[in-house]
Write a protein that binds this DNA or RNA. Sequence first.
DNA 1: AACATTCCCGGGAATGTTCCCGGAAAAATA
DNA 2: TATTTTTCCGGGAACATTCCCGGGAATGTT
Lengths: 342, 342
Amino acid sequence: MKRHQVTIIDIAKELNISKSTVSRALHGHQDINEQTKKKVLELASRLDYQPNLLATSLVMSKSYTVGMVVPEFLTPFFPSVIMGAQEVMSKAGYNVMICQSNESYEMEVANTKALLASRVDGILASVTRETRNFDHFQALHRKGIPVVFFNRVCEELEVSKVIVDDYEGAFMAVEHLITTGRKRIAHLAGPDSLIISRRRLKGYIDALQKHILPVEEDLIIQYDLTPEKATIYVKHLLDLPNPPDALFAINDPTAIAAMLVIKDKGLRIPQDIAVVGFSNDPASALIEPGLTTVAQPVFDIGREAAYLFLEQVDIDLEEYKPQTKVLQTKLIVRGSSIPHAV
Amino acid sequence: MKRHQVTIIDIAKELNISKSTVSRALHGHQDINEQTKKKVLELASRLDYQPNLLATSLVMSKSYTVGMVVPEFLTPFFPSVIMGAQEVMSKAGYNVMICQSNESYEMEVANTKALLASRVDGILASVTRETRNFDHFQALHRKGIPVVFFNRVCEELEVSKVIVDDYEGAFMAVEHLITTGRKRIAHLAGPDSLIISRRRLKGYIDALQKHILPVEEDLIIQYDLTPEKATIYVKHLLDLPNPPDALFAINDPTAIAAMLVIKDKGLRIPQDIAVVGFSNDPASALIEPGLTTVAQPVFDIGREAAYLFLEQVDIDLEEYKPQTKVLQTKLIVRGSSIPHAV
DNA sequence: AACATTCCCGGGAATGTTCCCGGAAAAATA
DNA sequence: TATTTTTCCGGGAACATTCCCGGGAATGTT
């Protein structure tokens, strides 16, 4: 019907009082008569008054919303992180604006711009696999807007981060393969631009070296994390004159793509080749055999990121010392690495 | 450093011109000298000026953002819909605010309130499994804010909707089971409050009746869509004195939960019991045997919802006639209904 | 009774924009 | 040269809200 939403001025006029009084009534300020307060509250709910957050944010220079930018959310990993963050954020009175960059650097930049335009109070972000330039985050930080990275972080920037112990997780995973008798373990790694790739790769290498196994260049494949490429590279590995007897993948989608190729080729998992993933997606328990993988505390990642934001909001960024939280991972052993495992 | 973001007034002062002129320069209005325009644009980019959307939205009474509220996003269905909507929305110059109600009615109400407070220009929504009261959407509509439902819609409200042909999909699925020799087909249905439950149930019943099979009450189980309950009810069905030889589930997560129970009991799929799901989640292709399911055009659902919003935004809601788009489904046959199928 | 204190309330500035209106200067026409 | 038109710009209201300041009335204190 009416184009115009109910404002405090409408309420004020109706009650023949000033907008200041209405404002005080709605916020439970002390300088207000109980009678008039009651009347205002009554009328407000009768008219279904909804405060205009735009106006409030404008005058307060504070929007009580934070932006969250994730590279993707078709896989349950990032949604879980978001839920964790949302849980603590909403308790603290903040809204969360979710942006999805679709693994595109340009969209990531556009997203941060849009969030900045909406004057969010902070940003929690995980970068795309393409992102090599971090000026857009630097700019936010320079403007005094707290940035917290999680999972896929930017090392150079002096901001708070929450990560999992990728090195430890990868090390455990590979050591597990070694102690169960594997000798030629391949690694499907991510792009060098992502630190998680580098750290997981390091864990892989160190585990091999600890057990005095050779690190062979042609068993290490760095790729861009697209599913199609995963398939191609796994085929390549299997066609090697001396193929690997185990495969450690940077994440579960990659591991699952690998398993499909392997099964398609008629090889047996884990007898002919063992597979281990990373992140314990629900799908890893569904596929047969079950995928051995490194579990991450997904909800806690989001919660911690939110806490790190709350720590620094409302204080001068100058006097805030960025922190890095490292969460622990856990190896989940299933049938893809040990025959007859659950 | 500085708390305060760059505004057009800062630019105006620096250039000794008025804010009006700056505004004109930034928006390419006609009443502007090329020289000054160039100077403004230069300084703006040098200072990394970002327009304050709060102020703009306030004065224009238009935020160029729409809210999207979905019951859940751990499963890829809703994220896919969101991506579809985002695609056409961003082309039209709109931002999308994503809210997730976590299948909680209260959160859904809170979400719509928050979106209203942010003065979104419209809302695309899919309701929770708990939602039986639609006053919060009614209120939006009454305030002149376009609402478009998708997937889980509210029938009573006179707003635009996009759904898939649930009836047809269910009918096809059940007919497929019948023509492949199944006689006692159970149905794990959703709560009566969701229309998709009712329509899929109707498809199930009509398919049975077309092929002159009895509709047995104890083979139809309506439940609240929680995974735990699914497990319990499937066990119950299998323990029946005369157990079913096929199971049609309202969605893939339910079907997959059922498959796990069935396999756990040592029964063979599809020899002992066939299973069919709905929505073709990626997981349905991963599990063994592959899950026969009804595919929905997920991205198109989002796209259509967005189109329906764009149709009615900027016009008087009085003169808009709500539409309902019905998208077609497709049966995907896999090994869970036919032995040795892909 | 005179003064101080408390209790409420209204006025108005400020937030960062957009847009309309009027007007000065420059250019075009007579 | 005088008049009209065009070009360009500044002033100021409006959007919905918060918050500070001042002040009148009621209550309390000496």
